[in-house]
Amino acid sequence: MELTVTDLAVGRGGVPVLAGVSFALAAGEVLVLRGPNGAGKTTLLRCIAGLQEPMAGQIAGAEDRIAYAAHADGLKSALTVAENLAFWAAVFGQSGIDQAMTAFDLHDLQDRRAGQLSAGQKRRLGLARLVVTDRPVWVLDEPTVSLDAASVALFADAVRAHLAAGGAALIATHIDLGLDAGVLDVAPFRARVDAVRSSDEAFL
């Protein structure tokens, strides 16, 4: 089981952002994406998660194996913490949410409505969703936003447990999670003008 990205080019609104991105991610590995704002980390992750088509290149080993988490957690404020998690578990064909609740210390909050949680607690709930999906590859976009130090540690532990169970993770983040991670700086892959045929290219 391995996620392999070969010579990938991605774009935003038809304009190429990154080109020639290649890496491989094996079971038990973490890869951290770095790069300045607007470098294309989010676009790259969305593309790997299958939300948008690559402009060029291949992604292998992503089909139906990715759990994706981005800035928005997709929580329903009218549902309780437990209901939110149980919903995502059911969508991914799983049933147990206990492990996820423990991993992110959510048991005390389980009957609270998601709308009454603080930003950090919401984030924890959003990340707990990853555990219930039971998917091997986590693709995470800035997962630690609005988490305090203790919660970051919880998150790092969850990632470690995921890796120990044979999973892998691709994380775009600016802080050091204390994980034994490979680092991929996306800045060198910034797309040059003529590197990729953008949709406007035909008009030049």
Binding site: L51, H71, G74, L75, V91, R129
Partner: peptide, 16 residues
């Protein structure tokens, strides 16, 4: 609603 809170993205990456 699902678009604004990101749930639609997550549903699109789910097995459904």
């Amino acid at each position: 609603v699902d678009w604004e809170d990101g749930a639609l993205d997550l549903l699109a990456t789910s097995p459904l």
